[in-house]
Design a protein around this nucleic acid. Sequence first.
DNA 1: ATCATGCTTAGCCATAAAGCTAAGTATCAC
DNA 2: GTGATACTTAGCTTTATGGCTAAGCATGAT
Lengths: 110, 110
Amino acid sequence: MAKHDPDLSLIFQALSDPTRRAMVLRLSAGPAAVTELAEPSGLRLPTILRHLSVLEAAGLIETRKSGRSRICRPVPGAMAQAEDWLARVRADWEARTDRLEALLSTMEDE
Amino acid sequence: MAKHDPDLSLIFQALSDPTRRAMVLRLSAGPAAVTELAEPSGLRLPTILRHLSVLEAAGLIETRKSGRSRICRPVPGAMAQAEDWLARVRADWEARTDRLEALLSTMEDE
DNA sequence: ATCATGCTTAGCCATAAAGCTAAGTATCAC
DNA sequence: GTGATACTTAGCTTTATGGCTAAGCATGAT
């Protein structure tokens, strides 16, 4: 397939890692510095920085240098695209999952 | 981070690829055989089969052998978990993005 | 000026992902 | 039973991902 929806790919990719999802959840509670964000994970700083850059490249968070700290915060509308995609596909799926199709499926089995 | 939410990871990972998203969209329009699913992508069958197994492992689709064809169809509630996660996080983010915080952020900049 | 703190960069390693070809198996049509 | 069709499996290559260590740079405190 071609390179459609690069943003969507980046967003889903970013959210596919538990460490990054934990970071996103942490940022829901308010901005945090890198060290603060790294602490609950037990991972080293360079590793966390890479995760941060993935989240930032996906447009999910933004960071800003303040003194020797880097402050990270969520980007407000960033997940709308992904949510919309999911909602749309799910709606289509549920629309198709009526008794008629279940019946056809059962009949095909025999 | 630990191995929390393995399902969520699998789902987001599965959806992070444009080819797989196209397959998911195609299946929204109705069940399809493997070859049929492969056609618009221009990719070889083994490649498509691997994508299929990723989608199936994530619980997003199910497949069934019918004669020499394998019929693929969506699994109805499969994306709810991902959608819920996104909705929850987005709600938190939007709740935090009021004028107060924007103001504090601006003040910190100076 | 010096030192600690907090990030940053460079680079290595192991594993997984995404594509391919080639060769196999199973079913349907004749 | 032979041949075409539709997967399927095995195995290879390239690139990306997720972790690390070691060493560097910038800032704040003394």
